[in-house]
């Protein structure tokens, strides 16, 4: 509910007075009303006889045209095969249609398939299970095992790693790979094989490089000792 009108605003609005209606206003309105009542109602629109016949003829012709087009379309199968089938089976209409639009019957064609050429399968990687060359991380068992391992509590994870030394080693390698990638060290691309000594060597080199740079900056006084 809006606030009540401000009394000062109400007083200001009250200044807008309305003059009286003219004295003859009632007479004028009554006269207009009487004139309205005296007006004859509008005549009904009449349609002449020839026009009526023309309209009926046009309607009939249009109906016949639409019917012929519909039957033709149905017989040609445009409205679906079942309807065409029914039309051609209708006793009199079917015989007449057969002369004009013969029924399209399904043609059984011999389908000759191309001979299938069997291509030789791509050679499988010559990696034997258990060998050092096997890319363990790509092996489905290894991927599932890693996923299960990540979900285990720490103690069970440690026990599991003790029981699976090869996978544990592979995990350590993966971790080292990730660290190397984060540090920007490019390792030789040998899928499945990570040279740990090489990695350690690169990491030591990087650490030395960083230390030298830091010492140089400290000598220049750019960093606090």
């Amino acid at each position: 509910m809006p606030d009540p009108l401000d009394p000062r605003l109400a007083r200001a609005l009250d200044a807008f007075t309305v003059p009286e209606l003219p004295t003859d206003f009632t007479d004028r309105v009554a006269a207009r009303a009487a004139a309205l009542a005296a007006e004859p109602p509008l005549p009904r629109r009449r349609v002449s006889a020839p026009r009526r016949w023309w309209r009926a003829g046009a309607t009939g012709l249009a109906t016949i045209a639409v019917g012929v087009v519909s039957i033709s379309a149905a017989a040609m199968g445009y409205l679906g095969e079942p309807l065409s089938h029914v039309l051609h089976r209708t006793p009199v209409l079917g015989a007449a249609l057969e002369h004009v639009l013969p029924e399209r019957r399904p043609v059984h064609r011999l389908v000759v398939h191309r001979p299938v050429v069997l291509r030789p399968a791509p050679p499988a990687p010559a990696l034997l299970p258990g060998s050092d060359q096997q890319p363990l991380a790509d092996h489905p068992f290894a991927r599932r095992a890693f996923a299960r391992l990540r979900a285990l509590p720490p103690e069970q994870r440690r026990e599991w790693l003790d029981a699976h030394p090869r996978l544990a080693e592979r995990l350590r390698e993966r971790r080292a790979e990730r660290h190397a990638a984060r540090a920007g060290i490019v390792l030789p691309e040998e899928p499945g094989i990570v040279s740990r000594p090489l990695l350690r060597e690169r990491l030591i080199e990087r650490r030395e490089r960083l230390r030298e740079r830091w010492l140089a900056r400290r000598a220049q006084g750019l960093v606090q000792p």
Partner: peptide
Amino acid sequence: GAAFRALVARHAALPHRIAWR
């Protein structure tokens, strides 16, 4: 017509006031 004239006399000021303002 007399009844309409009475209605006009009674109520004509109302639409006139609204329209004027």
